[in-house]
Amino acid sequence: MRVLAGLLCTVTLACTVKANVEKTVFRGPGDLLLPHVHPRLDALRLGSLSHAHPVLPTQLPAHFPSRAAPRGLESWYLLQRLEAARRYEVRICWPATQPTDFWLDTFTVRDVFDTPGLVKSLTQYSEHHQQFHLSESEHYEPAQSATAQSVLLLRIQAAASYYSTNRTLMEHPEPVDVDITNAPVLDPFLLNILPQSLAPFAAYFTVVAIGAWFLSGYIFHWIDSVASEPLLKPHSD
């Protein structure tokens, strides 16, 4: 019963977290010599995520869906120092008190700079939202390097999903407090199968399952032996 209760609790917590977590899974691209990329990434001064700086708490601007922007406002970040062909997972977590819909997409640098719509969005975000001043919680790491590295651009779209009688709030939704993501931000996959951050939980549940298997077998044999014992005849007066 304790094992069953624990599993039910885990399922309940998982469902609760799922309501406030969005993620994307991707593979690290091939190495790219950044100094040959134009426009220069360091000029955009994007917040960056890497193994050295895996957690990025920040505030993301959001807006209600419109015909021009059905997924709200867009924010851009740089995923650096990836391993080519290795799978990663980026997650974004936010409080339930700020109902918001998020979409996460990753793009190679070439794909962004070769697509007018994407490069326009990236440039507008850099100009209007960053203004070359990162918040204290955001980490900026110069993107240009003399050595090639595997990098991706992360686009986050945020659309407010609530209704309020406050007209000001409906016209200008407040920024959403987020963690990109629940440490680590870049979650490598072990053997390209299991996220590294879930490995301890997988090991724990494996041990519990094996223990429960042997314990249930012992209990079954004990009950079977008790049930098969002959009943003692009552004493005659």
Rank of each mutant, 00 (worst) to 15 (best):
L46K: 03
D31C: 05
V178Y: 01
R71A: 00
F113E: 04
P65Y: 13
H63M: 07
A159S: 03
A43I: 03
N182C: 12
T108H: 08
H172T: 07
Y162R: 09
P173H: 15
R81I: 04
S216E: 05
H139T: 09
K23P: 02
V176H: 05
P234W: 15
R71C: 06
M1H: 13
A43T: 09
V90S: 00
G30D: 13
K120R: 13
S197D: 14
L118S: 07
L78C: 10
A209V: 03
L215C: 00
H53G: 03
R87P: 05
G6I: 01
A96N: 06
S225H: 04
L122F: 15
D42L: 01
V3A: 04
V185R: 11
I219G: 11
G30I: 14
K233E: 03
H38L: 02
K120G: 11
E22Q: 08
H128Y: 10
Q59I: 13
D187A: 00
R40L: 14
Y163D: 15
S145M: 02
D105T: 15
F64D: 00
Y204I: 12
S126P: 10
V176E: 06
T106R: 11
I92A: 02
S161I: 07
P35W: 11
T100F: 15
S150A: 10
P70F: 10
L41D: 03
V119P: 10
T10P: 05
V112S: 00
P61G: 03
A85F: 10
F132R: 09
Y218M: 02
P61V: 07
A160E: 06
H235Q: 02
V119D: 07
F132C: 02
D187G: 00
A227P: 13
H63F: 05
S75C: 00
P35C: 13
Y204S: 04
W76P: 06
D105S: 14
A52F: 00
E83Y: 10
P173T: 08
A148K: 09
P95H: 09
E136H: 10
V17S: 15
V25H: 07
L73A: 04
A85N: 12
V208W: 08
T165C: 05
V226K: 14
Y140M: 09
S137Q: 03
H221F: 14
L60A: 01
S150Y: 03
T12L: 14
K18I: 14
